[in-house]
Each structure stands twice: as structure tokens, then as C-alpha cells.
Amino acid sequence: MKSCLVVDDSRVIRKVARKILEELEFEVVEAADGSEALEQCKSSMPDGILLDWNMPVMDGLEFLKAMRALDNGAHPKVVFCTTENDLEHIQEAIQSGADEYIMKPFDSEIVESKFHQVGLL
């Protein structure tokens, strides 16, 4: 069973994402901001990360850069999932090591299609 870390400061989004991912047979772990997520990754690196951008303490982009610098940091497929939907943000995310990008609002079909594209499904 593959694992996926859901990083979002909204409990509602985390719950929705968890439901979708569990239906796709992922083992889901949650984090409410980038620094919590980084701690998670240090103790156990997930296979996939669904990542919000704007969060308190440490935002998604900062987390991504820090996570990719970790020992096993190249392993997870990272899919951004954010309301930032302009070309500049998308390009910055890709350059910083994101594998895919979801513009909110999203649904299960979009998550499934993006996870297919990065090879998690």
C-alpha cells in the first residue's frame, strides 16, 4: 500500500483529500503546515505528497525545497494543490521540484488523473 502525506491548513480540505486518497487505496497521513510535514518526512518519507501552498509557519514552496534537500527527498511524487492558479506560480512550483499541479477547486477525478500522471497509480 502506498502512502500519501496531505499537507493543508484547512481541516476540511484534508478530510476531503483523505477520503479521495483512501478510495484510491493510499495510506494517508496529515500535516497542517510545512514544518509539521517536514517532521513527518524526516521520520518516514511518503510515496506521494498532496501539498497546499499558502499555510502558516512554513508554506508549501519552502517545505518542498527543504524536503527535496533531505536524504531521501527525491523519492516522493509531489502534487501541489492550491488556489494559486497563475502561470508564474505553476512555473515556480515545477522549478522547485513539484511533479504535478492541481488548481483548486478540485474533485476526485482530477486527483486520480494527476496521480496517474506522476505514476502513483
Partner: peptide, 20 residues
């Protein structure tokens, strides 16, 4: 629409071939 370009289209191709 934003929904349509997220169905099946890899993000790299969106960035490369589409304008907002």
C-alpha cells in the same frame, strides 16, 4: 476551463502550450 485543462493534461504541457 480550469476543470477541463486538469483532466488528463500534464502540467508541463499546460505551461508550455496554453495561455491564461
Amino acid at each position: 476551463t480550469q476543470f477541463e485543462v486538469q483532466r488528463g493534461l500534464p502540467i508541463q504541457l499546460l505551461v508550455k502550450y496554453f495561455k491564461q
